[in-house]
């Protein structure tokens, strides 16, 4: 564990807390893509299957359980409890366009052709693009609430911090996993446009509004 990974995990945790608090406090999930949240639930479920087979550390187990549980809570809040506030008219990204290609890629490019390993690889590939329905929703409505922007910033920062963690681990531990690194790069690049708008607008107190 190094500082970059710890900050990455904390940033990820903060993102989840921000999202759940936003939905709970405002009793609304307006502006949030349920499609992205479903994809995250799939990502954590398929990645953390190793909870059943491998023990890494108490920290690791705890975080995995939190990530899986909160992803299902979020989906439940959006599709059941606060269904009436869900922006389904704008949340029209077709998730099969992400699930199918990442499934095929995981079958073709993986470290080991076993069920658990292919599912882990699939989850890495899928996570890298899982935010697209959310970014699509923001681009369709042309704006995002500040709280949604903070959520996206924390969520995007997490994999960016992991990239630094991987650079560190490459030099310090001679450890690297190309699949995670390439997917993490893709994931972080997808946020760049948003990061730019966040820094130039939201941090200056303005609402995140896309140029017409």
């Amino acid at each position: 564990m190094n500082i970059f990974r710890l900050l990455g995990d904390l940033s990820h945790l903060v993102a989840i807390i921000i999202l759940l608090l936003k939905i709970w406090k405002t009793r609304s999930c307006a502006g949030i893509s349920g499609k992205s949240q479903i994809l995250f639930a799939i990502v954590y479920t398929t990645r953390y299957l190793d909870l059943l087979t491998t023990y890494v550390s108490a920290y690791n187990t705890f975080m995995k359980i939190i990530f899986i549980a909160t992803s299902y809570v979020t989906v439940f809040l959006m599709y059941v409890k606060f269904k009436a506030t869900y922006d389904h008219n704008h949340d029209t990204f077709r998730i099969e366009f992400l699930i199918l290609p990442t499934s095929v890629l995981a079958l073709l490019i993986n470290n080991e052709f076993t069920i658990v390993e292919v599912l882990w690889t699939f989850s890495i590939y899928l996570e890298s693009v899982a935010i697209l329905p959310q970014l699509f929703l923001v681009s369709k409505t042309g704006e995002a609430e500040s709280i949604t922007s903070h959520y996206l910033f924390a969520l995007g920062s997490y994999r960016g911090l992991y990239l630094l963690n991987w650079v560190y681990r490459y030099y310090a531990e001679d450890h690297y996993d190309l699949i995670a690194i390439v997917a993490g790069l893709v994931q972080t690049i997808l946020y760049c446009d948003f990061f730019y708008l966040y820094i130039t607008k939201v941090l200056k107190g303005k609402k995140l509004q896309l140029p017409a």
Partner: peptide, 10 residues
């Protein structure tokens, strides 16, 4: 690099 299938990250 060893092709270990244990993933120690989240």
């Amino acid at each position: 690099q060893t092709l270990e299938t244990t993933h120690d990250e989240l």
